[in-house]
Design a protein around this nucleic acid. Structure first.
Lengths: 200, 200
DNA sequence: CCAGTACTAGAATATTTCTCTAGAAACTTG
DNA sequence: CAAGTTTCTAGAGAAATATTCTAGTACTGG
């Protein structure tokens, strides 16, 4: 399952890259084993050798894309000190990720209800957990000092990510009324207004 | 395409109901023509007679679910007068719709990137347009008087719907950390904070 | 009651899907 | 260099897919 020779690592990488390209160009319906093997030039057997199943490859790709997104958020966030600048940084970073890496963002969003997630929940959670932890440990002190509202656990995240994810989702789906630049100008301050705590 | 005999209308209804049930119980992957004909007890020929293609049926179901959701929002919204109560009403109504009609909500969310949408954009937009118009015409006066912030067009909607849609999405996907009751208690006021305008 | 239209039925078709197997080639280690 | 493991190729196979087609049944308007 995990490559033990450099050569294998390389072909696994190629398969993931090809899979992302296929999903981007042909959509979720055209996302098939054969399409991935054709555009990667790598045989069916190799794919099954490395990932066990097609769902296994999809799950691995999902974990990688999600990790890239979270890393982008973390990188922006950990340059900040105050609650307000942190919130604004995350919002802008998410929108920028969608704009600069639309294929990855589209794959993440399109896979929310995909069939491969339930089977590989554990592996995906393992990739997400440490990154989520870093984000939460940034937020915790600000919630305790009252600079950010102290809400039940996932709700703060919903308020922060919700508007941005919805904006990105529609833009990625081709909605022509969405302007990402405009969104990164307007949304940060408004989202901050929904998160600011009693302690100014 | 549109039924001209009462008998036809009835089987079209049964097909849509069966389609929703199949999608709910077997997920997007198990959402197939054969599954729909089996569980509805209605023949392949009838399905194609009424909807032209399987994508046609999916698009019709999507339009109907979306209409139901928007109608629920409108019904709650138009009982209100002030900007604040209106915003809160929409938030609560969306969460209640997800809880009471999870199958419809799940179908809507799961279809965001589905292949059938692009082909039937026009028909779906026709079902949505008048309802969206009613929602916007509620918001317009409040934006003009400054009780709600006057932002570029889709952004107000993103701030209002974003956190709620994300919360519903995760709950529908089986996230056990989401508590809808808690969300309808906390989110309305916070979302209002992000939307309130300069004119108090 | 007759003609024409709406509707229903179900088999047949042509593609396309994922998965598996068996063995050859390449690399690593002792 | 030799043994053992990893990686890769190629192709076969079984199951499932959306759609088309032909034929038959119910309804409706005149």
């Amino acid at each position: 399952m995990s490559p033990k020779q450099p050569r294998g690592e390389e072909t696994a990488r190629r398969l993931l890259a090809a899979a992302l390209e296929v999903h981007e160009h042909k959509g979720p319906e055209g996302f098939t084993v054969q399409a991935v093997t054709s555009t990667s030039g790598i045989s069916l057997g190799s794919l099954y050798h490395h990932f066990g199943s097609f769902d296994g490859l999809a799950a691995a790709l999902y974990a990688r894309c999600m990790a890239d997104l979270l890393d982008a958020l973390i990188a922006s966030l950990e340059r900040t000190r105050t609650a307000r600048t942190g919130v604004r940084a995350v919002v802008v970073a998410y929108l920028r990720f969608a704009e600069e890496q639309p294929a990855k963002a589209r794959f993440i969003h399109a896979s929310s209800y995909a069939g491969f997630l339930p089977a590989h929940t554990a592996a995906i959670a393992a990739a997400k957990a440490p990154r989520i932890e870093r984000l939460q440990s940034w937020a915790r002190p600000h919630a305790e000092t009252g600079h950010i509202v102290d809400l039940p656990d996932p709700l703060t995240e919903m308020l922060l990510i919700g508007p941005v994810a919805e904006t990105a989702r529609r833009w990625l789906a081709g909605d022509p009324t969405i302007d990402l630049k405009q969104a990164s100008r307007v949304l940060p301050e408004r989202i901050w207004q929904s998160l600011r705590g009693p302690q100014e």
